[in-house]
Design a protein around this nucleic acid. Sequence first.
DNA 1: TGGTTAAATATACAAAAGTACACCAAATCT
DNA 2: AGATTTGGTGTACTTTTGTATATTTAACCA
Lengths: 206, 206
Amino acid sequence: MSKLLTDRQKEILEIIAGHIKEKSYAPTYQELANILNIKSKYAILKHIDSLVAKGYLEKDSSARALRIIHPDYLPADNNNYDVPLIGRVAAGYPILAQENVERYVSIPRAMIKAEGRYFALKVRGDSMINAGIFEDDLVIVRSVNSAYSKEIIVALIEDDVTVKRLIKKDGATYLQAENPAYSDIYPAGEWSIQGKVVGLIREMAN
Amino acid sequence: MSKLLTDRQKEILEIIAGHIKEKSYAPTYQELANILNIKSKYAILKHIDSLVAKGYLEKDSSARALRIIHPDYLPADNNNYDVPLIGRVAAGYPILAQENVERYVSIPRAMIKAEGRYFALKVRGDSMINAGIFEDDLVIVRSVNSAYSKEIIVALIEDDVTVKRLIKKDGATYLQAENPAYSDIYPAGEWSIQGKVVGLIREMAN
DNA sequence: TGGTTAAATATACAAAAGTACACCAAATCT
DNA sequence: AGATTTGGTGTACTTTTGTATATTTAACCA
């Protein structure tokens, strides 16, 4: 969806975001050129157009008519936090790669208790119902690559993401479902811990 | 400090705030004139200068360089919604009365799907574990006074708030726990439906 | 090596933007 | 009645602003 930025584009986007934060309106192309010691507005124009094309900005053909639409650069909101919702995981990409981001979801800031990167995952299946984690629930995950026994984690097994309880016992490590209908998983091939579940959001019919 | 506004000034300030909220940048004087069916930009200029003088706005002499500084008109936060967390319910007060509000909690805007008043409630006990509602979970409730059978509701029985499944069957109405250890409640005395559970937020150890 | 892409420059231009001045009209206040 | 305040009109600037074209430079890649 939204492609990668060049260093220069990232720099410009950050300057725009900072300008909005400080002055509460976007800079003009000329102002951007001055800040960057660029002598031609046209260089800015092209950068802005690239940022628009890549889905980070929207612009209307008028003075200062810029709007940041990418969550990473939106002026920070104090009570709220946007995390990427990880969809189907593309083979070979790290789980947090842009390629796997379906969209961004807003979660209460209170859920973020430790530093680090966070993501959200929509729960598939009923393997964790006894832990109160149901299908279609949104679990909020802090990105870590190790965990203690009995913690609920997100694991990547081959190209499959799964939420399970991590168990370390007698030297063995395995993944336990919270549903008697499922048996324990002793991962055979390539697998890794992707994060710890730190929160859950459920939306019900209304 | 900040003096009273005339009706016209208030109107213009609201239009500016609305424009910022919608487009995320301020309107130009010409655009304001168009919206208000005023034929001269100069009329707008004078209104803006009045608003600046009265401490509601700041302006820099450049295109769209307006900044709202009065708290009453600052753009509201879009992704965020604050609902009252209902604590212990004081006898005789309606559940949403200020007396019962413990604090306000921030929830994702996405949870608000229908018009109405909302509140949050911290779950006590394990009577709903089979519905995936655990102790200390925060349930988000839309304030209504009736519900369909099988919906999960918040009921006020005497001065006791409880989350249960509403069952209407063979002319009888009762409240069902989602835990075999609890038996159905056939409310005897004063009771009422306070709302439907529309969402759930859980924070886990980290 | 040659070709592509990112980045910047120089110059030009029409439209849009804020500002200024003179004047008008209605309502409000003393 | 006269003065003041509030709101509006018309025209006329000067700058700013976004955009266009053509050209240059450096980095990267196969």
